[in-house]
């Protein structure tokens, strides 16, 4: 048994909308797998099926070797879930939360208490353990949420958009916690709208859209398929856009022009070389640039590339 998660042809409909439309996925033990997709792609529905919260209409899903429908109780004993919204009792204190859930995992009073103290310390929450969760910052809440998910040292941990709504500091905190978990051998399924997050944390990434996987691979493989990094050039004069596009030393394929923002965006392979060449070319032609930036492709661009159709994805920034 080397697969921690197996999903075969899982379907789930809400009314006439298919949230999952024949999803297939396998995740190897001890790896971090990213599910990347826009809002409404079916990521959360997939997590809810895998964590036994939702019954699939069709297909088969196994977690840690057990069927999520027929052996739900066994699955529940082996998983941890960090959902999109803090799954905590907001009225209670941090320690009370850990103790409550520890008891519900049937650790018994003494072990639940000891485990609570241990986790508070590990997640840097020991001095706020008595405070009500309502008074916690977003990052603290997320850490406590993660601590609760780890009470039983789950075999498989589900992280559903774990950093949505967090400030950069909170995000960094969650990322470092996830990394240390992975070092201890936990399998992680991570959903995210941010390519960067999947890139930072996941060994493999599956891109999900309309309830099915449309591409998968390592972050590097996906990025290579999407054309890797991009260079954005904002000109001072919109009238020079045409001239600038013609002389830029980048392949014409994949160049986009946004006249309103006086922006040219183009894929690059060698970041620094491309930057130097673009600067030189503009300078020689006497075209003034207001801004030049190198960046990762946005989720929009990944999707445009992978699906070849227009997606109404919000800028993932």
């Amino acid at each position: 048994m080397t697969e921690a998660i197996v999903i075969e042809g899982v379907r789930k409909r809400y009314g006439d909308k298919a949230a999952l439309d024949g999803l297939d996925l396998t995740v190897g033990r001890g790896t971090v797998h990213g599910l990347l997709g826009p809002n409404g792609a079916g990521k959360t529905t997939a997590v809810r099926v895998l964590t036994t919260l939702l019954r699939p209409d069709a297909g088969r899903a196994e977690v840690a070797g057990y069927d999520v429908v027929r052996q739900a109780d066994r699955v529940r004993r082996r998983i941890g879930l960090l959902g999109q919204h803090a799954a905590l009792d907001e009225e209670l204190g941090g320690r009370q939360n850990l103790e409550l859930f520890g008891r519900l995992y049937h650790l018994g009073a003494r072990r639940a208490g000891a485990r609570a103290d241990e986790l508070l310390k590990r997640f840097g929450l020991a001095d706020v353990g008595r405070k009500s969760v309502k008074q916690y910052s977003g990052g603290m809440r997320r850490r406590l949420d993660l601590a609760v998910s780890l009470i039983t040292e789950p075999e498989v941990l589900f992280l559903d958009e774990p950093t949505t709504g967090l400030d950069p500091r909170g995000r960094a905190e969650v990322w470092s916690s996830v990394r240390s978990l992975v070092d201890s051998g936990t399998t992680v399924l991570l959903t995210t709208q941010y390519l960067e997050e999947a890139d930072q944390l996941a060994h493999r990434i599956s891109v999900v859209d309309h309830g099915r996987v449309i591409a998968d691979g390592t972050a590097d493989e996906l990025k290579a398929r999407t054309g890797g990094d991009r260079i954005d050039v904002v000109l001072r004069d919109a009238g020079q856009l045409g001239a600038a596009v013609a002389l830029l030393p980048v392949p014409a394929e994949g160049v986009t022009v946004d006249a309103d923002r006086r922006l040219i965006s183009a894929p690059v392979t060698d970041r620094m070389k491309a930057l130097a060449e673009v600067l030189r070319a503009l300078d020689e032609a006497g075209i003034e640039a207001e801004d030049i930036a190198l960046r990762r492709p946005t989720l929009d661009e990944v999707f445009l590339h992978l699906t070849g159709e227009d997606h109404r994805v919000k800028e993932a920034v």
Partner: peptide
């Protein structure tokens, strides 16, 4: 309306509790 109900339901506890 809070995520906490999902936590309860994804745990090996007696749901009726």
């Amino acid at each position: 309306n809070k995520g906490v109900i999902d936590r309860f339901r994804s745990m090996p506890m007696t749901n009726g509790a």
